[in-house]
């Protein structure tokens, strides 16, 4: 926890500073993303506001806003430039950043914790799509896979297709390329391991694509009880 807190304490302000400092145009009301689907408990928080509010389908997310999912919950998030889709699994927190310049948009998603499946289209030459965690910055051109930043500060990214350039921001520094059907794991001490996708990786990647609600109907004397839930086997 110590390492995690330390890294978080340094990285988050740097990231926020980078994003806000880099803005060449005044923040517009252009939404960076949009909530396409919600299962159970999904909340969002505006920039510089402390309270979380319940999110709804169709909610536009602007630069700096945060999304949080509860237990057995899910949020599907679309970027408004059509560049990609995030499947935010249960108990995740992420921050959405984006800058629009002319008709281009640079996107950066800071994953504070949790599992996020992604499908990102090929970006134009002068556009960026990045994932940032306290230990890694991943620059994406066009790829699909998942990213997990767990409670013990372990970062895992696995790709079903495409390539990703990685910059390790942890104490060891460095970087590398992650290729299609490969997985990288970086522990809290900055040690990284590349490997080919194994069955677990593939199953986890497939499970992030499961976005449908399961239902149980129980007939009781006082009427039917319907329980909607997001099955744990999908995680």
């Amino acid at each position: 926890m110590k390492w995690k807190n330390l890294i978080l304490a340094f990285t988050l302000p740097l990231l926020v500073g980078f994003i806000s400092g880099g803005k060449s145009s005044a923040p517009s009301d252009t939404p960076v993303a949009l909530v396409k689907k919600i299962v159970k408990d999904v909340k969002y928080k505006k920039e510089n506001v402390s309270d979380w509010e319940a999110a709804k389908t169709g909610l536009p997310l602007k630069d700096g806003e945060e999304v949080k999912t509860g237990s057995k919950s899910l949020a599907l998030i679309l970027f408004t430039d059509g560049s990609g889709l995030l499947r935010v699994r249960e108990n995740a927190i992420l921050h959405i950043y984006g800058q629009k310049e002319n008709q281009r948009m640079n996107k950066n998603t800071f994953v504070q914790k949790g599992l996020v499946g992604f499908d990102v289209k090929k970006q134009a030459e002068n556009e960026e799509f990045k994932f940032t965690t306290p230990t890694v910055v991943a620059s994406i051109r066009g790829t699909g896979g998942f990213l997990d930043y767990s409670d013990d500060s372990t970062f895992t990214m696995s790709l079903d297709s495409g390539d990703v350039a990685l910059d390790f921001t942890g104490v060891g520094g460095g970087g590398g390329m992650l290729h299609s059907r490969h997985t990288v794991t970086i522990n809290s001490r900055g040690q990284f391991y590349f490997r080919q996708q194994n069955d677990n990786d593939r199953n986890l990647s497939n499970s992030t694509r499961q976005t449908e609600v399961k239902k149980i109907k129980i007939n009781t004397d006082s009427g039917d009880l319907e329980i909607n839930y997001y099955g744990s086997e999908n995680r």
């Binding site: 252009t30 949009l34 396409k36 689907k37 679309l78 408004t80 430039d81 059509g82 008709q103 281009r104």
Partner: peptide, 25 residues
Amino acid sequence: LVLSPDAGEMLTQHDMLISISFVKA
């Protein structure tokens, strides 16, 4: 860009979302 629905997508009334993006217009 029509962000939602996808072509051929199956939606319920509850999940219904039509979203048109003019970010690149």
